[in-house]
């Protein structure tokens, strides 16, 4: 299990995936002030939501590289022939994807908060929200990656599959900033837990179907 996590993390960093995610996240956060204009009050108000939307798009970025290469290279066949549980393999992929993208993203959030002129208090709420919500984003990304592996135009389909499922995270995550407070964070944590618990089994079923 740990060997699987380390392998996936090494691959994520070696392919530049983690750096790309952070660069993409910061770029989206930078685009908003350009689009909206230098209205400091407005930026402060929408800043938290912008960070959540950017985090969601950044998590979607590497979806095609999470499962499809292993299916093509026969790696998943080898796991299955060894009698390893596909749900455990998927869970390892979720942990590895989270470790590869969430900590750098949370560090980049500090820079993005500066760009959007967020207060320290709001930044703290956003960061707590990201700690709670990013595992679910990682789980959704792996499950979606498994569902679309082997399809043509997998990237576009992945967006259509994953973004609607992430709406609850976005609502509760951004809602916790807009006066939702601890209640919002609790709902975010509950949603996140549900997604993280279910995703390995969805991913495993999709991988099994993809093998045949």
């Amino acid at each position: 299990m740990i060997a699987l996590i380390l392998r996936d993390m090494r691959r994520a960093y070696a392919s530049g995936g983690a750096t790309l995610i952070v660069a993409f996240f910061l770029l989206v956060a930078i685009l908003f002030p350009f689009a909206i204009g230098p209205d400091q009050k407005l930026l402060m108000r929408i800043g938290g939501g912008v960070i959540w939307a950017a985090a969601l798009l950044a998590a979607l970025l590497p979806v095609e590289r999470l499962v499809a290469p292993d299916l093509d290279s026969g790696t998943l066949d080898q796991f299955a022939a060894r009698g390893m549980s596909m749900a455990a393999v998927a869970a390892a992929k979720i942990v590895a994807h989270w470790l590869a993208f969430a900590p750098p993203l949370m560090a980049a959030t500090i820079a993005a908060a500066g760009l959007l002129d967020l207060s320290g208090e709001t930044l703290l709420t956003v960061e707590i929200g990201l700690v709670l919500g990013t595992p679910a984003l990682a789980a959704l990304a792996v499950a979606t990656g498994a569902l679309v592996a082997g399809l043509r135009g997998a990237g576009a389909i992945a967006g259509l599959v994953m973004l609607p499922l992430a709406i609850p995270l976005l609502i509760f995550g951004a809602g916790a900033i807009e006066g939702g407070g601890v209640g919002g964070l609790k709902l975010l944590a509950a949603t996140s837990l549900l997604i993280v618990a279910g995703a390995p089994f969805v991913a495993a079923a999709a991988i099994r179907a993809g093998m045949e």
């Binding site: 392998r7 691959r11 070696a14 093509d72 290279s73 026969g74 790696t75 066949d77 080898q78 022939a81 060894r82 009698g83």
Partner: peptide, 15 residues
């Protein structure tokens, strides 16, 4: 017993 498979795909990390 344990199975070992040699399939068409190499299943080796290229890098």
């Amino acid at each position: 017993g344990q199975r070992a498979l040699l399939a068409e795909a190499a299943a080796l990390d290229a890098e």
